[in-house]
């Protein structure tokens, strides 16, 4: 297997997971290069789901955490229930439930029923993985991150808040200048952990009810495809493991840099480095 033929494989299958390149997956004589390229191609979906859910989830999680911290019952109770339901039940079940829910949405599509062949061209995109699974993951990470931010909000030192009052800060200014940065600093190590596990959770998408259309799946989808075809799990799964360990290290690196920036005001000798002590696994 020379490098040139492998580059050829990259051209054919590098973007296969999003529907570009060859339509047919390799069927026999799987080379190591085939497996590395296709599983890597699937990582595009893991990144897509993980990054977008993290981005949207960050803002919604802070809102939910603030709602849980509110004095108003009307705000607090729904937020409590939201977090309880999404943290108390398996993500796998949530995928199934939301898929069934989304397919109930009336679709503005055409159903085509030919003898022996019937299918629906539907306009409802929520029953597709790219949107439906993203919404589910977003709600899920919102609940987990809200719990983390809520804990951080509650452990903001009293002195900081009193000092803010003494300076005449109130409302938005107090939140923006005092509450929000302190909360982020306190929550960041746990939030890093949540980010790592959210990326891991993205592998569930194509194994729950969301169908992988035209074999456009994520990394685990292709890894299990190879494991089924070759009946040899010892090649595709270690490849997948390498990709995910690399991804985990990137997450730790990026979140570590952000953590350093969050703590930039501290004297350099007391700067805390982000140490991932994975006591809590989601």
């Amino acid at each position: 297997m020379s490098l040139a033929t492998c580059l050829d494989v990259v051209q054919h299958y590098g973007l296969r997971s999003i529907g570009l390149g060859d339509r047919l997956l390799p069927r026999n004589d799987f080379t190591l290069c085939d497996q590395v390229v296709l599983i890597g191609s699937g990582m595009i979906w893991n990144l897509y789901f993980g990054l977008l859910a993290l981005f949207f989830g960050f803002f919604s999680a802070i809102s939910v955490a603030l709602a849980r911290n509110s004095h108003r019952r009307l705000l607090r109770k729904p937020a409590d229930w939201f977090v309880f339901i999404f943290r108390g039940s398996p993500l796998f079940i949530q995928f199934f439930l939301f898929y069934e829910l989304f397919t109930l949405i009336p679709r503005d599509g055409i159903s085509i029923a030919l003898p022996g062949l019937s299918f629906t061209l539907d306009g409802s995109w929520l029953s597709r993985a790219w949107a439906g699974a993203l919404v589910t993951l977003w709600l899920n990470t919102t609940a987990y991150a809200a719990e983390i931010f809520h804990g951080a909000l509650r452990s903001i030192p009293k002195g900081d808040l009193e000092a803010a009052d003494a300076y005449g800060f109130s409302g938005w200014k107090k939140f923006r200048r005092i509450t929000y940065p302190t909360m982020l600093r306190l929550a960041w190590p746990a939030y890093t952990n949540e980010a790592i596990f959210l990326f891991h959770a993205t592998t569930l998408v194509y194994f729950s009810s969301f169908p992988a259309r035209q074999q456009k799946g994520d990394a685990l989808y292709y890894a299990s495809y190879f494991a089924q075809k070759t009946f040899n799990p010892f090649v595709p799964y270690p490849i997948l493991a390498c990709y995910f360990i690399a991804l985990t290290m990137c997450v730790v690196l990026v979140y570590g840099l952000i953590y350093r920036r969050l703590n930039r005001h501290l004297p350099s000798n007391s700067k805390r480095r982000l140490r991932i002590r994975p006591q809590l696994v989601r």
């Binding site: 592998t203 194994f207 685990l220 493991a241 360990i245 696994v281």
Partner: peptide, 8 residues
């Protein structure tokens, strides 16, 4: 084991 998705 921690670095890789459990479902794998």
């Amino acid at each position: 084991v921690r670095g890789v998705p459990d479902i794998a």
